[in-house]
Design a binder for these strands. Sequence first.
DNA 1: CACCAGGCAAGTA
DNA 2: TACTTGCATGGT
Length: 231
Amino acid sequence: MDPGAVLLSRPDNPEVALPALYERLHAYWGNLGWWPAESPFEVIVGAILTQNTAWQNVEKAVTALKREAVLSPARIRDLSEDRLAEWIRPAGYYRLKARRLKAFIRFLYERYAGNLDRMFAQPTERLREALLSVNGIGPETADSILLYAGEKPVFVVDAYTKRILCRHGMIPEDADYPTLQGLFMRYLPAEAPLFNQYHALLVHTGKTFCRKKPLCAGCPLEPLVGPGEAR
DNA sequence: CACCAGGCAAGTA
DNA sequence: TACTTGCATGGT
């Protein structure tokens, strides 16, 4: 059966709707091979810098850190917070984010001797709790680190994920983070490559067709929105 | 010009 | 517990 028809007929049944949504997006975009970064540490820096911020601005900041050759735990540890802040300025909230990057680096050195491999050797659930205890790391940032830097099977929920599911009547407007994450993790096999690709598909679709001001025209999901469905 | 972008924490009642 | 506010740059 056509995944589109399945999704349209049962948007409220995640067991059929979530795999159908994936099939439709994957057929349209193909493999995205995601998180635009060259190393796990760059993923982590990007995850913090992109909080409520356009990715384009994050790229400027990351480029500056590369230009200054400070994109490593040790170099950021040895940097003054003020200098770090100036270099990441294009990412916005730059004083706040400099503090948050420093907080993560302190955490990394205090618990794992500055070594990401040691950090990721921690059991995933324990590591998630530990990351959430760092000031400036919330659920989405923690899960992005676990999935995209650590390749752990943890589903990342973000604004696009929620917006797309809302627009298609799959969740209520007020669904919270654990609820959304629980949906994906209960009804899909716990495989990091699948979670990686699924989230990438949602973000890519969201950026292209589903911003806060809807730009639905041409969206591969557009035919799935039923009559009268809020958008 | 106004509005938006891959959140999070701290403050208030 | 349930809201509200601060954080800030750059693109549309």
